[in-house]
Amino acid sequence: MIKPSDIASRIKNALPDISIPTLGREVKLPVYVIHNSLDSEDYFFIFDFEQFVEQTRAGVFVRPALTVWSGRSDFRRSLFARQFRESFAREFDIARAQLAHSDKKPRGWFGFLSGTFLELRGANLSAFLANLVLLVATSAGTKVLSHILPKSWLSGKSDTSKLEESIEATQSKVDVALENIQIRLHEELYNHAYRDGGRGKRAQLEYDAWPLPGYVRQHLNDGASGAWW
């Protein structure tokens, strides 16, 4: 099994050329994997963006710390990684759009690079920034990535082409990290996942985990990913 330190090293070494900002304090970014049925591949995500968004609203480049809670972990990691990344990017884009229409100009992670790429579609820029946030959030708490774009950034291509290449490059690194991220098993999510019968192994459940937040319980049966903040 790949060690978290090896993942962080592989990610960092693969992406040279533009420095990311100096990061402030660590902010937890909990994610809850909610199973709709007994099918191990049938699940959705609830993202808790609240602290992360509030710090960004204040113009702070925080160090996001990703924690993934689930009721089971016997799903395909490659599929999980892609779905997680795509869902996160959608929710990030929604949060960025809402901040853009607020009284305060988006700063921090949600405003990073915006002035540089004003001519680009917001969705592209949001996808790029969401990938960057996930790279930092999955760096296993070791060294923060110091560079984010491939060498082709300096090759004279259009800004749109450069950004598309950057998104593609970071996506593969995010997927590697997410495939190997720790899945923490929560008893309440376990009971929800197996509510229709059958039981999985309980040995890895974290019995001392805090109870699920009220908003998570409220949306256990929604069936669709979302950020409730």
Rank of each mutant, 00 (worst) to 15 (best):
L205G: 04
N180F: 09
F92V: 11
A95C: 13
E179D: 04
L178W: 05
F112G: 02
E119S: 01
F110P: 11
E187D: 10
V53I: 15
S73E: 05
A65Y: 13
G197N: 04
D74Y: 02
S73L: 01
G111Q: 04
W109L: 08
G200S: 11
K143E: 07
F110H: 09
D103N: 14
N180R: 03
F52Q: 08
I94D: 10
V31L: 07
A8Q: 11
L220N: 06
P4E: 00
E164G: 04
P21C: 02
L15G: 09
S139I: 01
H192V: 12
Y43N: 05
V27M: 13
G223W: 03
S146M: 06
L99H: 02
W228F: 10
I34G: 03
A227C: 07
E187P: 01
S70Q: 00
P211C: 08
A8Y: 11
N36G: 15
K162F: 02
L220Q: 06
K151G: 13
L163E: 04
T170G: 13
G226C: 05
S166E: 07
H147Y: 12
V176S: 04
L163A: 00
G198H: 01
D48E: 08
I2H: 03
S155N: 14
L178D: 03
H186V: 02
I2W: 06
G223A: 00
S152C: 08
R72F: 01
I2F: 05
I183S: 01
Q204T: 09
D39G: 09
S9V: 06
L99R: 03
I11D: 01
A58K: 14
R63E: 10
S78P: 12
K162E: 07
V31N: 05
G197I: 12
R57Q: 12
S139A: 08
F110E: 02
K162C: 09
I148S: 13
R85H: 12
G111A: 06
G223I: 07
F117T: 12
K173D: 06
